[in-house]
């Protein structure tokens, strides 16, 4: 007890948050699962038992066996290898597109909130208008109209997801900028850029982290959705959405082609969402239920 109290008194906010996070049992399980998935995706070229695009038409689709742990698809490709490489793509899209939306959203929101007045009004009205657009439809058109490549996929998804981030950051900045330490910084003659980057953004990092964690699963979902419709990642590449598309096409004869990718995608989404929720509780003690 005394030891605990002692460590509480000189713990940094970050360490306190970590302690609250650790107490959240499901989130810890989720975090472990997530680390495993990420490690598997990163190490995919090393640990895949077969090259992911290697076909074996004579073999065709086989049920899970000791040679092919998760079976093979209709072209005789090893499902485990395809799943591992698919995870690489799906997670990469998730992280990169989230980073893109993070940068746009934070900068836009911070400028809008910091500038205030008419600038803020115009910038936020623009966000309102963009919010009302049916964006899924736009992403689909974008993917159809232009050559389907991964970079465009990042951009299209990033362009959709920055809006909420901009709103959140703007709200936080609006509340922060009237506080005395910001006024002090201004009185010291610091430039606006320096005040924004050094004094304001570090103070809104909590909500930014939380919302970023919750954006990753949404982005992965959007990528899989597009790949499922045949508009995202193109074969012979592999992604979870694409594997589910193939699986759904073949489920009548080869159900394992649907089941394993579905389980993997759902597990990834679940662990990301649980981690995000627990982070929110950990970083914002007031939001504790």
């Amino acid at each position: 007890m005394t030891e605990n109290q002692h460590s509480t008194t000189n713990a940094s906010p970050g360490r306190l948050a970590w302690r609250r996070f650790r107490r959240h049992r499901p989130a810890m399980v989720a975090l472990v699962l997530l680390s495993l998935l990420c490690a598997a995706a990163l190490l995919a070229p090393v640990i895949s038992p077969y090259p992911f695009e290697q076909q074996d038409l004579d073999l065709g689709a086989t049920a899970p066996s000791s040679q092919h742990w998760l079976g093979t698809d209709d072209l005789g490709r090893d499902m485990l290898s395809r799943l591992l490489h698919g995870g690489r793509i799906s997670l990469a899209v998730g992280v990169c597109a989230t980073l893109a939306s993070l940068c746009i959203g934070v900068v836009y929101g911070a400028i809008s909130g910091y500038a205030g007045g008419r600038t803020d009004n115009v910038m936020m009205r623009l966000v309102d208008i963009l919010y009302a657009l049916p964006f899924t439809v736009f992403v689909i058109i974008l993917m159809v109209v232009f050559k389907r490549n991964l970079l465009l996929l990042f951009i299209a998804i990033g362009a959709v997801e920055w809006l909420t981030m901009a709103r959140i950051v703007r709200g936080q900045v609006l509340a922060l900028k009237e506080q005395t330490f910001i006024r002090a910084a201004r009185a010291l003659g610091y430039s606006h850029g320096r005040i924004l980057m050094r004094h304001i953004i570090p103070n809104v990092i909590g909500p930014i982290i939380v919302y970023t964690t919750l954006t990753v699963p949404r982005v992965i979902l959007l990528e899989s959705f597009l790949s499922f419709l045949g508009l995202g990642v193109q074969p012979p590449m592999s992604s979870w959405g694409l594997l589910i598309r193939d699986g759904a096409r073949m489920m009548e004869s080869y159900p394992w082609m649907l089941i394993y990718p579905s389980l993997t995608l759902s597990a990834a989404l679940l662990s990301l969402n649980l981690t995000g929720d627990a982070l929110r509780d950990a970083l914002d003690p007031r939001a504790l239920r």
Binding site: L221, S224, I244, E252, S262, S266, N273
Partner: peptide, 22 residues
């Protein structure tokens, strides 16, 4: 409800078909 959020329609649909239809 967590499950509902994490199992997207394009996973749920084929799985429902697999279980209840096929």
């Amino acid at each position: 409800s967590m499950g509902g959020i994490c199992i997207p329609a394009f996973v749920l649909g084929p799985l429902l078909v697999l279980i209840f239809a096929l």
